[in-house]
């Protein structure tokens, strides 16, 4: 009786609790997202917005002036992501595996120090590495000289063939703390009985890592991969701080974020174009959506089986 009365009464407090978050989120995040998609279907003709359907996308993928830049940015972006996956995750796993061994001293010190770059802003990181790698200052060349490898030095950020990889490695340097921490946490959550059982069966050391621990931390590696994917395909700050909006040398470090920024705001003699900027943002949205869907429906459901 009381229950049915309660159900019929409008529970205003639920609305009050939900409203602020719901409104701010909808107004600033969701509506602009759809607004951007809508803008991408218009073009400005004589200062009025004309509906062109998928015309902007046709230009983006069909017109060589646009499509070359787009695919250049896309390929660079994929390479940027690949380097992260190949370098950041193995280093993260290695560091986490070392940190999670029981008797190690100074754990807290290592953890805290290795995480320091992650809290710094891209601007600081970009400039700091630019200075260190600069041939003018000579910190990098003189250090290489000290180990007899001076001949290897090149102005990495200034060479077309190295600049993107260098930036990706700088980004790995900055963010390796995150996979390290998440995998470390995943390793701590492996029940002691599992490890003890393995030890009773004589599975120790590196074979214990490969056969027992690695399969159990795969879900954590999956989460890190998707976070890295979203972060990388949305990257802008580091490249903008280190190489500027033109993503030099000769657009060799251009990623989708810098491409969108340039298109939207214009640069040098080219005027800004909000509609094309929106089209690029929509393309980025679709790329991220595809990646996230592959993870959610393809990878995560399979990884679940390993969880406790």
């Amino acid at each position: 009786m009381a229950r049915s009365v309660r159900n019929q009464k409008v529970r205003w407090h639920i609305l009050v609790f939900l409203a602020p978050a719901f409104l701010v989120y909808t107004a600033i995040m969701i509506i602009p997202l759809f607004g951007t998609m809508q803008l991408s279907m218009f073009r400005s003709v004589d200062n009025t917005q004309v509906f062109v359907g998928l015309g902007n996308f046709k230009a983006l993928f069909g017109d060589p002036r646009w499509s070359e830049s787009f695919w250049n940015a896309f390929v660079n972006n994929s390479w940027f992501f690949l380097i992260h996956m190949l370098v950041q995750n193995p280093i993260g796993v290695l560091l986490a595996a070392l940190l999670s061994s029981n008797k190690l001293r100074m754990k807290a010190f290592y953890r805290t120090s290795i995480f320091v770059p992650t809290i710094l802003s891209f601007v600081i990181v970009g400039f700091a590495w630019k200075l260190i790698l600069s041939p003018i200052w000579g910190v990098a060349p003189s250090m290489l000289d000290a180990v007899g490898l001076k001949s290897l030095f090149a102005p990495w950020l200034g060479k077309e063939e190295y600049a993107l990889t260098t930036l990706a490695l700088i980004s790995v340097w900055q963010f390796v703390g995150i996979p390290m921490m998440l995998i470390y946490a995943a390793m701590l959550s492996i029940p002691d009985e599992v490890i003890e059982a393995a030890e009773c069966d004589g599975v120790t050391g590196s074979s214990q890592f490969w056969k027992i621990k690695l399969p159990l931390i795969l879900p954590a590696i999956g989460i890190i991969s998707i976070l890295t994917f979203v972060g990388n395909f949305n990257a802008f700050d580091l490249i903008y701080s280190a190489q500027g909006a033109l993503a030099g040398p000769n657009f060799s470090t251009d990623v989708l974020g810098t491409f969108m920024f340039r298109t939207f705001f214009g640069f040098q003699l080219q005027l800004g174009d909000p509609n094309m900027g929106s089209a690029i943002a929509t393309a980025m949205f679709l790329i991220i959506l595809v990646g996230v869907s592959i993870y959610l429906f393809g990878i995560q459901t399979r990884l679940r089986r390993y969880q406790f």
Binding site: Y25, P32, G35, F236, F264, P274
Partner: peptide, 24 residues
Amino acid sequence: LVGLYLALGIMIPIRLGTVSILQM
């Protein structure tokens, strides 16, 4: 549904709506 709707933003970066946000 509301929970899922609010969780969407964890994966989708807010930057993608920048053009509209600026206009707003």
